[in-house]
Design a protein around this nucleic acid. Structure first.
Lengths: 192, 192
DNA sequence: TTTATACTGTACTAAACAGTATAGAAGGAG
DNA sequence: CTCCTTCTATACTGTTTAGTACAGTATAAA
């Protein structure tokens, strides 16, 4: 009999995809074992704390991805380039709206209260990093604060709408619209 | 012993609130009975089809509310007044972001597939009604289509963000920002 | 006052649930 | 080879789940 051997680093994205598709409550252990092809033994070996530990590690894994690929570039690199990189990475990460934001989904029901600090931090840091990049690019502090909040919110709304309407083009349209407004905001303020 | 007698019209909003707090999968029959104080017998009397029938009737109830209070005014009344009315009603309905959009939440996981047509219709009609009102108010067809999509998406994003950040002021700020952009869009196009 | 209807409460079943225990397989170290 | 560690598979626990059955209660009409 063939035995597939996993490492924790391989398991987390696999389980994450199940949570993404079914939500925290919808993802029962049996659904997770069925969809990942991992046995209960393996899952409890990697996550002795069960579902709660899985979700907690997944959230940390997601946050690390965003820190490395989005937040740190925004904080460190040339702001306009980093923002351009953000649109590209976000579109790829959410597969043009075919893949949801697990953190956003968790925020909508009582799951939020279990992982409150992780969820809060994910959005807080995203908004703050974008805001700081906009200020460095020449936007006013006030305008940057407003538009960075609208941008992160707009992305979440775009994900909901594109799924609800089964419209694969909607998310990319949303990103393009947000990108245009961000660019305009920087141009206007920098031109003063 | 006192016996509280309900009608279906009273039961739907009660059960809806439980779905809103816990999501479709999280709302088990025992949680529903505990939070609504309705017995299993009563619930299955009103909804012989169980959870699926409950959610289906709740979605219909929500859509009716939006038709009466938002979509029809947008389609029928003075467009600027109807749009102004929309901001007020939406803020009240979602309790300034303290209450989520059940339809949006359903759209994020596999629950979407169970209620696909209801979910699609809710957003489709909202966007279309707003778009038509904007055109009647003097906006160009293209600009109206873009901004009405951004508005409905922006509302959903604002709900996620205000919950995620535990920021009660964020949703109202989002609505105010959207209202400003909508007003500007109408003014610019009508002035041509 | 009888009788039908509408609603409630509870006891029940079978399936699904989270989690545990444990035996065993693979692979490397000695 | 043996031994140890890491990972997998499955059988098992008690609990919770959705849903059914049915007896019981209030109300209104006849």
């Amino acid at each position: 009999m063939t035995r597939t051997v996993f490492e924790k680093a391989d398991v987390i994205p696999l389980v994450a995809e199940v949570f993404r598709e079914l939500g925290y409550e919808g993802a029962s252990m049996s659904k997770i074992t069925a969809r990942t092809r991992l046995s209960k033994g393996s899952l409890y070996h990697f996550f002795p704390g069960g579902k709660e530990e899985m979700a907690s590690e997944i959230l940390a894994h997601i946050e690390n991805w965003f820190i490395r690929n989005i937040y740190e570039p925004l904080e460190r690199d040339d702001p306009l380039k980093a923002i351009h990189n953000m649109w590209r990475e976000v579109d790829a990460y959410f597969r043009s709206g075919q893949r949801i934001c697990l953190v956003g989904a968790f925020a909508l029901d009582e799951t939020r209260d279990r992982f409150a600090s992780g969820i809060r931090q994910y959005f807080r840091r995203w908004i703050d990093a974008l805001c700081a990049a906009l200020v460095r690019a020449g936007a006013s502090t006030d305008a940057a604060a407003v538009i960075s909040e609208e941008t992160v919110g707009g992305i979440q709304g775009g994900l909901i709408l594109s799924r609800a309407l089964h419209d694969e083009t909607l998310f990319e349209r949303t990103l393009a619209g947000l990108a245009e407004r961000v660019t305009k905001c920087v141009r206007e303020d920098a031109g003063r």
